[in-house]
Amino acid sequence: MITDMTISNFRCFSELYVEPLARVNLFVGMNNAGKTSILDAAELLAVGKVEALARSAIRRGELILASRDERGELPEHVVDPSYLFHGREELRAGKSFSIEGRGLEHQWVHCKAERASSETLIMTLRFESHSSEEAGRLTLSPAGGVLAPPRGRPKPGPRVNFLGTEALDSDRLSQLWDAVVLTPGEEGVTAALRLIEPRIERFALVGEGRSASPRIVLKLEGLERRIPLGNLGGGLRHLFALALNLSSAAGGVLLVDEIDTGLHYTVMADMWRLIIESARRFDIQVFTTTHSLDCVRALAEVREKYPSLAAEVALHRIDKDAPRTVVYTMDEIAVAARGSIEVR
C-alpha cells in the first residue's frame, strides 16, 4: 500500500505532495484541479511498466492521427505523450516528470524526453521498486507520437483496474467476468447489486464467444425471464462495474473516476461500505474521485455506523497550484456534514 506520493511535473501538477494515503482515498476539488491526474499518477506507479504510460492517454483521447503502416493497416492507438508532462506544451528534449510513492515498498517512476538525433526524440523511462527495476525507451514518430503497446489479456499478478465514467465495453466485461466467475468474489458482486435491487438472485454473462457484444443478465426473485442488466438503470450498472472491478483486483489497486456516478444519495453510505469492506477483504488500495456532496457526507454516516471502516478512508482536496492536498479526518468530515461546511 502506498502511504504517500510525490508528483513532479506530471500533467497539471508542477509539484504535489499527497499524504497520508489510506486503504481507500477519495479526492475532491474543482474542475481541472487534477483529480483524475492523481489517479493517472497512482496507476503509473502501481502498474510499474512501460505499457502503463499509454493507458491514461488513451482514456483521455490524447492521440495522434495515425497513418497506415507498411501493410496498409492502421495502428490501434498512437499516443501523444506530450500531455503527460506539465505545461501542455509540445514535447522537447529535457522535459521530464516523476512520481514517487512510499509505503511498505518504495516505488519510483521517472520519464525524460531526450534527443536521440537531430530529428528524433526519445523518452526514457525508469520504473523502480525495491523488488524490481524496469527501464524502457520509446522513440517518438516525426509527428510526436508513440505506439501504444497492444492490449492483451492481463498477466497474472495483482491487477490495477481503472473504472472511468464510460460504460464497460464488452472486452473489459469479459475480462472481469473471467476473473470473478465461480470465485468468492462472485457472491460479493451479487451482494453489491442487492444494495439497489434486493430481488437479484444471480447474474451471468451471456453471449461470450458467439456474439459481438456479450451482456450481463440477471435472475430476479419471482420472475421467470432473465433481465438484462442495462434494463435496471445506470446506478445498478455502475455498482456492478464497481463490484466486478473490486472482486477482480485482489492484492492490487482500483482507480475509480467519479465513484458516485448514477447513484442516489440514499445508497451512498452502502456503496462506501461495499468499497471499504471489499478493499479490506481483497487487500486492494482504492483511489477515487467525486464531485458529489452526498458522496462525501455519506462518509459521516459510515463513521457513525461503522467506525472501523471509516478509519480506512482518507479524504483529500486538491486546490489548483497548491503544493499539497488538504486532508480531512473523519471527525472533521462529520463536523462538516453537520454544519453544511464545504470540503470539496
Binding site: R317, V326, Y328, E332, V335, I341, E342, R344
Partner: peptide
Amino acid sequence: EEVPVTLKGP
C-alpha cells in the same frame, strides 16, 4: 469545532 474545518475549506 467548525472553525478549523471551515478554515480548511475551499
